[in-house]
Amino acid sequence: MDKTVLICDDAIFMRTMLGDILRRAGFQVVGEAATGAEAVELYRQLKPALVTMDIVMPDMGGIDAVRAIVSEFPEARILMCSAMGQQALVVEAIEAGARDFVVKPFQPSRVLEAVQRVLG
């Protein structure tokens, strides 16, 4: 099973933490993006099995990145990462084509459950 993942978040701290959780579960982090535009570009290059996407990022937010990726690659499996107060944005992202979401602060078990669902 392809366990490649692209992590998109403007905060290094978050990318690191998420990367640790995923690596420990046997994922291979093939790329990290700090902006929406980077995320789209890296997806094209890497075609990872999974993308984790922050919502608020500079230079194209997470939602627009989801739209861009999904319009080009409808089979893309994107997991949104959101804060508690961003419910409406998460709804929008899912309607734009994201498959699932996790809420910060990350609990490893919940992250992995969500990943399972997205890949399942």
Binding site: S82, M84, Q86, Q87, A88, V90, V91, I94, E95, R99, D100, F101, V103
Partner: peptide, 13 residues
């Protein structure tokens, strides 16, 4: 369940 509206969106999807 956190963000129930978002969970609902996932279910709808």
């Amino acid at each position: 369940t956190p963000l129930r509206a978002a969970r609902a969106a996932v279910i709808r999807r």
